[in-house]
Design a binder for these strands. Structure first.
Length: 219
DNA sequence: GGCTGATCATAG
DNA sequence: CTATGATCAGCC
């Protein structure tokens, strides 16, 4: 669909300034009254609008360009409202994975961020698509992410997954990522045996994405 | 009010 | 179950 990244960025810039209501209307999509039961609705609308590959393929949104698309909800003061989900965390057989071969590294190598301005109290249709920007981690940013990832992955490998809370990690944190509290997946237990635990995912802290915004827009 | 832990929809 | 897309909700 896009021959290169600038074409994609340009397409994203074309829809900046539109409200979600306007964009949804263009694509004949009904707007939910709440995101409570459709948490991924905004992200999916943007994927549709920009022509990202639909479905649940476990790779980037624009594989031919190596670009991952992420929406970033902002309050009206331009600060991130939420952390950003990156990918699920491998809890088993992860001994052969290194930072450079990890899913986190891959997903975050190039991200097209699309701010969505409007807090929880604002109706979804009136929220506004902000100015998109392309991000590739600086050496310093990558170092922080790598350190967090390695620390967390080591704890998982040592069978301490249950003791890793969301308080770990400067930029990257580990949190539950599941349909509900009943979901279970195998992981390494403290004696090296296999235990069942809640699936986990890696998330970028909002303090980290806030810095990305500030660096990009000199806020 | 921020943050952690819990949760929702859908596809395969 | 895992993957995709995330936000909700209540504790501190």
């Amino acid at each position: 669909m896009y021959r290169n990244i600038p074409e994609l960025l340009n397409a994203a810039e074309q829809i900046a300034g539109l409200t979600l209501g306007e964009l949804a209307h263009q694509h004949h999509i009904a707007i939910p009254g709440s995101l409570r039961r459709e948490k991924g609705w905004i992200g999916q609308l943007l994927e549709l609008a920009l022509g990202a590959t639909a479905g649940s393929k476990p790779q980037q949104d624009f594989p031919e360009l190596g670009v991952e698309l992420k929406t970033l909800p902002l309050a009206n003061n331009d600060l991130p409202l939420e952390s950003t989900f990156v990918c699920s965390a491998p809890l088993l057989n992860q001994q052969t994975i290194t930072w450079n071969t990890s899913n986190v590294h891959h997903k975050l190598s190039t991200v097209l961020w699309i701010p969505i301005i409007g807090d929880r109290t604002q109706n979804i249709a009136s929220r506004v698509i902000g100015t998109p920007w392309l991000w590739q981690p600086s050496a310093a940013q990558e170092q922080i992410l790598r350190q967090d990832w390695e620390d967390i992955m080591e704890l998982i490998a040592l069978g301490k997954v249950e003791s890793v809370s969301a308080r770990h990690g400067e930029a990257l944190q580990l949190r539950p990522k599941a349909a509900n509290g009943q979901s279970l997946t195998p992981a390494i237990g403290i004696d090296g045996t296999i235990i069942q635990t809640r699936p986990r995912g890696f998330y970028l802290r909002s303090s980290f994405t806030r810095k990305l915004l500030q660096a990009q827009f000199q806020l």
